[in-house]
Amino acid sequence: MKKFLKVLLILIVIVIVIVGILAAIAPKTILVQRSTTIKGSKSAVFAQMTHFKNWPNWSPWYEMDTAVQMTYFGNDGEVGSGYHWVGDPKKSGEGEITNQNLNGDSMQFSLKFIKPFKSEATGYLVATDSGGMTNATWIFIMDNSFPHSIFSSIFSMDKMLGKDFEHGLDKMKQYVESHPEPVAENTAPAIQDTKYPMHIYAGIRKSMKWDELSAFFQESYSKIGQAAGSSVNGPAAAIYYKWDTDNQSTDVAAVMPVANEVTATGIVPIRVESSKALMAVHKGGYASEGAVHDALMSKVKEMGKKQHLVVEEYIKGPGQEKDSTKWITNIYYLYQ
């Protein structure tokens, strides 16, 4: 009997030591983050994120427990809104989500678990313009103090939650891309029939996928600006030679108008001759330009003309204004 108690005591001590080691080496905070790029406007993506009544369109948690009961509160889409859920104790349990803060690009929300165990976490959903599309990010942050740290030392929360986040973002992507925003008649862009003057540009031209555009423009404008210096005499622009919707690719040049031709490694002079053009002004983030482009393309076809170049002039952008709703882009469709 004494031998048994001695062995038992040793086992208990070993367990305590193991628990202590696991608690000591476990991270103090759990952070899970996943992102995807969505072909849709920032406003469309952000509406799915900030309006809790839209969450059934994409949230993986609704698939886990289809019988869950939701009670919404507050003005959906505004700070203070949220919902309380009660579901199967073995699946979703009980808890509450509340919109804590909005800043135009992200929503911070609190996540409170009530049953089967009590716990709290903070989440963020972020939508940012990304080269004509929208980058959507889902972030989860939770305190990892004892005894939760023991569980997280054995099981990877990043893998467990990350898989759900990836599935949810993929569903959001599918929903937004299959439900384009309608354009009301009174918001149709004003189109001018004008003449695009001859321009001499310093530029970098490349064929690429759409999701590479943002990084390409950022790097290219920096190089051109350094090489051209005081010769730059107008706003940065992009010349689109081809836009392939099926393969989500484009042939584009990042350019800056210059008084004199600039020669530098990787930078070439690009001359655009004077041409008849249709022009419209877009106000807002680049991901929401689609309606303006659609209107210009339709007008070119209606006139029986053939478009040969598309030029976007970035009058005001992220370099001058952080708020994307205040960005201004002149869009020209040069036609023959």
Results as ranks from 00 to 15, higher is better:
Leu5Gln: 14
Leu9Asn: 07
Ile14Gln: 12
Ile14Cys: 14
Ile14Asn: 03
Ile16Met: 15
Ile18Ser: 00
Gly20Ile: 02
Leu22Gln: 04
Thr29Tyr: 07
Ile30Glu: 12
Leu31Lys: 14
Ser35Val: 09
Thr37Gly: 02
Ile38Lys: 02
Gly40Gln: 03
Gly40Met: 07
Ala44His: 01
Ala44Phe: 02
Ala44Val: 04
Val45Asp: 01
Met49Phe: 15
Lys53Met: 08
Pro56Gly: 02
Asn57Gln: 02
Asn57Gly: 04
Trp61Val: 06
Tyr62Cys: 00
Asp65Ala: 10
Asp65Lys: 02
Asp65Gln: 06
Met70Phe: 10
Thr71Trp: 00
Tyr72Ala: 08
Asn75Pro: 00
Gly77Tyr: 04
Ser81Gln: 08
His84Leu: 13
Asp88Val: 04
Pro89Cys: 11
Lys91Ile: 13
Gly95Glu: 08
Ile97Tyr: 00
Ile97His: 04
Leu102Val: 07
Gly104Ser: 03
Gly104Thr: 04
Met107Glu: 15
Met107Gln: 12
Leu111Gly: 03
Phe113Asp: 05
Pro116Gln: 00
Lys118Asn: 11
Gly123His: 09
Val126Gly: 03
Thr128Ala: 09
Thr128Val: 11
Asn135Glu: 13
Asn135Ser: 12
Trp138Asp: 11
Ile139Tyr: 10
Ile141Ser: 14
Ser145Ala: 15
Phe146Lys: 03
Phe146Trp: 05
Pro147Cys: 06
His148Leu: 14
His148Ser: 13
Ile150Gln: 05
Ile150Phe: 03
Phe155Met: 15
Ser156Pro: 00
Lys159Thr: 14
Asp164Gly: 08
Glu166Gly: 07
Leu169Arg: 03
Lys171His: 04
Pro180Asp: 01
Thr187Trp: 07
Ala188Gly: 03
Gln192His: 12
Thr194Leu: 10
Tyr196Thr: 06
Pro197Arg: 07
His199Lys: 13
Ile200Lys: 13
Gly203Ile: 11
Ile204His: 13
Asp211Pro: 00
Asp211Met: 11
Glu212Asp: 15
Gln218Arg: 13
Lys223Cys: 05
Ala228Thr: 09
Gly234His: 10
Gly234Lys: 01
Pro235Trp: 09
Ala237His: 03
Trp243Leu: 14
Asn247Val: 00
Asn247Ile: 00
Gln248Thr: 08
Ala253Leu: 06
Met256Phe: 10
Pro257Arg: 11
Val258Ala: 01
Ala264Leu: 02
Thr265Lys: 13
Ile267Gly: 08
Ile270Ser: 00
Lys276Ser: 15
Lys283Tyr: 08
Gly284Asn: 11
Gly285Met: 09
Tyr286Ala: 10
Ala287Trp: 08
Ala287Thr: 12
Ala287Glu: 11
His293Thr: 08
Val300Tyr: 06
Val300Glu: 12
Glu302Phe: 01
Met303Asn: 12
Lys305Arg: 12
Val311Tyr: 04
Glu312Lys: 10
Gly319Glu: 11
Gly319Thr: 05
Lys322Val: 04
Tyr333Trp: 11
